[in-house]
Design a binder for these strands. Structure first.
Lengths: 99, 99
DNA sequence: TATATACTGAACCAAATGGTTCAGTATATG
DNA sequence: CATATACTGAACCATTTGGTTCAGTATATA
């Protein structure tokens, strides 16, 4: 799930890096103090949320950013704001209708 | 943290409801099969993320939606897309420069 | 003042999360 | 073929999370 994936600081940071350019799992892991296995698990989470894809390139696993789920997340957020806005509109209409 | 708060289905649902109109803790809890205490805890999470505020009104605690942190979250998301777009632009420029 | 209503805090529990290490697999290289 | 590199899976551990129940507090009402 997208919001769940974005809930972790390390994962958000990884996502920012791979949005800039494709990186191998090892290259990504080099930026963090945690084990390679831990980074690999973070990448699996991001992969399940379809925020990244992986492909083998020789002995490397190359991680590529996939923006689509972010659009869904943004729509989700926009929806809350739309509901909020429309409730404000209703309130305004009501106040205007008052004597 | 905003993404952490949005990571839970029940909390997203609560947020959708209170975005439409102010509700008491009890009114919110009536919509779910979990205990009032569990709903109260979800609301505390949303409150810590500043996605809602609470105020006492008689014996009710009234929950109000607060949209500001959603703007931050949306900016966060937009940033990933911006990085992604600029990396695509760079790639395009490179390809154009190729013989 | 006593009682009912509307929560919240505390103690507890099971499952999920984020980390570890170590063993195993896939690929490249000497 | 043997070895090094680049991961991934499995087992494990501590902490967090989402739930429970029960006791306690704040407010309204009979």
């Amino acid at each position: 799930m997208v919001f769940g994936s974005l809930a972790d600081t390390t994962r958000r940071d990884i996502l920012r890096r791979v949005a800039g350019r494709e990186l191998s799992v090892g290259e990504i892991a080099a930026s963090y103090d945690i084990s390679l296995a831990a980074v690999s698990k973070h990448l699996i989470v991001l992969e399940r949320a379809r925020l990244v894809t992986k492909r083998r390139e020789g002995k490397l696993q190359v991680v590529e950013f996939a923006p689509a789920p972010l659009n869904d997340a943004a729509k989700h957020i926009q929806r809350y704001r739309d509901i909020w806005e429309s409730s404000l509109d209703k309130l305004e209409a009501y106040l205007k209708s008052q004597p």
